[in-house]
C-alpha cells in the first residue's frame, strides 16, 4: 500500500517521541491498543496549572499510519486546552494524513489515546483535591 507523503514524513521524522513520568505532576497518560493489528499506543500530555497542554509525547508500536496518527496528534494538542484537545476527531487525523479506508482505525486509535490521556489527567487531578485514595491511575 502506498503511504501519503505526510504519513511518510511523520513516520520517518516522528515528532515528540518519548514519555514523561506517569506519576509526574500535570501528566496524563493514555494507553490504548488495536488487537486487530496488535498495535500499542501510549500518548502523554503535560498540562500547565492553567489547564493548557504544554507538551505531549508518544510511543507507538504499530504500522506507519498508527505512528503518523499519534505523532500528528501530539503536534496538534500542544497549546490547546483540555476541552479543545478532547474535540479532535479521528476523521480530521485521517483527512490530514490522507489515510486509506483500511487504515482509518489507526486514526481512531490516536483519537482514543488523546481522550484516554485527558481522562487520566482529570482523574489524577480530581483525586488530588478529593479524598486522595485514588492516586494510582493505572
Amino acid at each position: 500500500m502506498a503511504y501519503s507523503d505526510k504519513v511518510i514524513d511523520h513516520y520517518e521524522n516522528p515528532r515528540n517521541v518519548g514519555g514523561f513520568g506517569k506519576e509526574d505532576e500535570g501528566v496524563g497518560t493514555g494507553l490504548v491498543g488495536a488487537p486487530a493489528c496488535g498495535d500499542v499506543m501510549k500518548l502523554q500530555i503535560k498540562v500547565s496549572a492553567d489547564g493548557i497542554i504544554e507538551d505531549a509525547k508518544f510511543k507507538t508500536f504499530g504500522c506507519g499510519s498508527a505512528i503518523a496518527s499519534s505523532s500528528l496528534v501530539t503536534e496538534w494538542v500542544k497549546g490547546k486546552t483540555l476541552d479543545e484537545a478532547a474535540q479532535i476527531k479521528n476523521t480530521e487525523i485521517a483527512q490530514e494524513l490522507a489515510l486509506p479506508p483500511v487504515k482509518i482505525h489507526c486514526s481512531v486509535l490516536a483519537e482514543d489515546a488523546i481522550k484516554a490521556a485527558i481522562a487520566d489527567y482529570r482523574k489524577k487531578t480530581g483525586s488530588e483535591s478529593g479524598n486522595g485514595t485514588d492516586t494510582a491511575a493505572e
Binding site: 490504548v32 491498543g33 488495536a34 500499542v40 510511543k59 508500536f61 482514543d112
Partner: peptide, 25 residues
Amino acid sequence: DLNSSATISDPVLLMEQMEKREAIA
C-alpha cells in the same frame, strides 16, 4: 471479532506489551 478495529484499553496487557516491544526495539 479479533479483526475489528475497536480499541482496547486493558492497562495490564497493554503496559506489558509496550514494555516487551520496547525491549525488542
